[in-house]
Amino acid sequence: MSLDIWITYVATVLLLMSTPGPSQLLMLSNSATNGLRRGLFTAAGDLTANFLQMLAAGLGLAALIATSATALTVIKWFGVTYLVYLGVKQILKARMSEAQTAPRASRKSLWMQGFITSAANPKAVVFFAALFPLFIDAALPFWPQFAILSSTYLVMDGMFLTAYGGSASWLARRLQGPAKLWLDRIGGSFMILAAILLGLKSLRPSA
């Protein structure tokens, strides 16, 4: 893969990541509530799902998944329901008095939240299957190019998620009392907003 093609790919991915989606909103919420270190487990879950989606695209499973509208719908609405549940739970937890200390989410739970949120967007497999061929030279071996594109995307996504999480964690450390409770409520609202965004994502391009 030539350097100019790789740079074009990086620029394309930057444009695609310029607006926050469900995973970024979840990262904001979890990092604000649990701190950046624990929030990174949410990012790890998201990136794990992305890797599996890329692998599925690379193995040619995208076409099979795209033809199963029922499976896509079930996966998507499971993720939407899960995010709404998490958001409502966090908003209710914010009602606790300042004298009570709400337990932080476990690392496993944070990882699972990130994984499910990303995996609940089954169109991502189709997206990767459509994106990668634009930058792959058919005259060169496929898998080395695929590895470069996949690793570049994961590194960039990880950097974006860390930046979101770091900003949310920094703000949370400087808020106390009622302001902190409102931050928790906003975090829960972010989760619900993430669910709405995920629900609005069309599973198939319009004709």
Results as ranks from 00 to 15, higher is better:
residue 1 M to Y: 09
residue 3 L to N: 13
residue 9 Y to N: 02
residue 10 V to E: 00
residue 11 A to Q: 13
residue 14 L to Q: 07
residue 16 L to W: 05
residue 17 M to T: 13
residue 17 M to Y: 05
residue 18 S to Q: 09
residue 18 S to H: 07
residue 19 T to Y: 10
residue 23 S to M: 08
residue 24 Q to D: 08
residue 27 M to S: 12
residue 28 L to I: 11
residue 29 S to G: 06
residue 31 S to Y: 01
residue 32 A to D: 05
residue 32 A to P: 02
residue 33 T to G: 11
residue 34 N to V: 08
residue 34 N to D: 11
residue 34 N to Y: 04
residue 35 G to I: 06
residue 37 R to S: 15
residue 41 F to Q: 05
residue 46 D to R: 05
residue 47 L to Q: 11
residue 47 L to S: 06
residue 49 A to I: 07
residue 50 N to A: 13
residue 53 Q to L: 13
residue 55 L to H: 05
residue 57 A to W: 00
residue 57 A to M: 02
residue 58 G to S: 07
residue 59 L to C: 09
residue 60 G to L: 06
residue 66 A to L: 10
residue 66 A to I: 07
residue 67 T to R: 15
residue 70 T to H: 04
residue 70 T to M: 07
residue 70 T to A: 13
residue 70 T to L: 13
residue 71 A to M: 09
residue 71 A to P: 00
residue 72 L to V: 09
residue 73 T to L: 14
residue 74 V to Y: 05
residue 75 I to M: 10
residue 75 I to R: 04
residue 76 K to I: 01
residue 80 V to I: 03
residue 81 T to R: 02
residue 82 Y to P: 00
residue 83 L to Y: 01
residue 83 L to N: 00
residue 86 L to D: 01
residue 88 V to N: 03
residue 93 K to N: 13
residue 94 A to Q: 03
residue 97 S to Q: 12
residue 98 E to S: 13
residue 98 E to Y: 03
residue 99 A to K: 10
residue 100 Q to H: 12
residue 100 Q to E: 15
residue 103 P to Y: 05
residue 103 P to C: 07
residue 106 S to N: 06
residue 106 S to R: 08
residue 106 S to D: 11
residue 107 R to L: 14
residue 107 R to D: 15
residue 108 K to H: 13
residue 109 S to K: 12
residue 109 S to M: 12
residue 110 L to I: 02
residue 111 W to K: 06
residue 111 W to Q: 02
residue 112 M to G: 11
residue 115 F to I: 03
residue 116 I to H: 02
residue 116 I to Q: 06
residue 116 I to C: 06
residue 117 T to R: 00
residue 118 S to N: 14
residue 122 P to A: 12
residue 122 P to D: 05
residue 124 A to G: 12
residue 127 F to P: 01
residue 128 F to E: 05
residue 128 F to T: 04
residue 129 A to E: 04
residue 130 A to L: 12
residue 131 L to D: 00
residue 132 F to H: 02
residue 132 F to A: 10
residue 133 P to C: 09
residue 133 P to S: 08
residue 135 F to N: 02
residue 138 A to W: 00
residue 138 A to K: 14
residue 139 A to H: 10
residue 141 P to H: 06
residue 141 P to V: 11
residue 142 F to W: 09
residue 145 Q to N: 12
residue 146 F to M: 12
residue 152 T to Q: 04
residue 155 V to K: 04
residue 157 D to N: 14
residue 159 M to R: 05
residue 160 F to A: 14
residue 160 F to G: 08
residue 162 T to Q: 09
residue 164 Y to Q: 09
residue 167 S to V: 15
residue 167 S to C: 14
residue 167 S to T: 15
residue 168 A to V: 11
residue 168 A to N: 03
residue 169 S to W: 03
residue 169 S to L: 04
residue 170 W to I: 13
residue 173 R to G: 10
residue 173 R to T: 15
residue 175 L to Y: 01
residue 183 L to G: 09
residue 184 D to T: 10
residue 186 I to K: 05
residue 186 I to A: 15
residue 186 I to Y: 11
residue 188 G to A: 03
residue 188 G to M: 01
residue 189 S to N: 05
residue 189 S to M: 14
residue 189 S to W: 08
residue 190 F to P: 00
residue 190 F to V: 11
residue 190 F to Y: 05
residue 190 F to K: 01
residue 193 L to G: 09
residue 195 A to M: 01
residue 198 L to V: 08
residue 199 G to K: 06
residue 201 K to M: 12
residue 202 S to W: 12
residue 204 R to S: 14
residue 205 P to E: 07
residue 206 S to N: 10
residue 207 A to N: 10
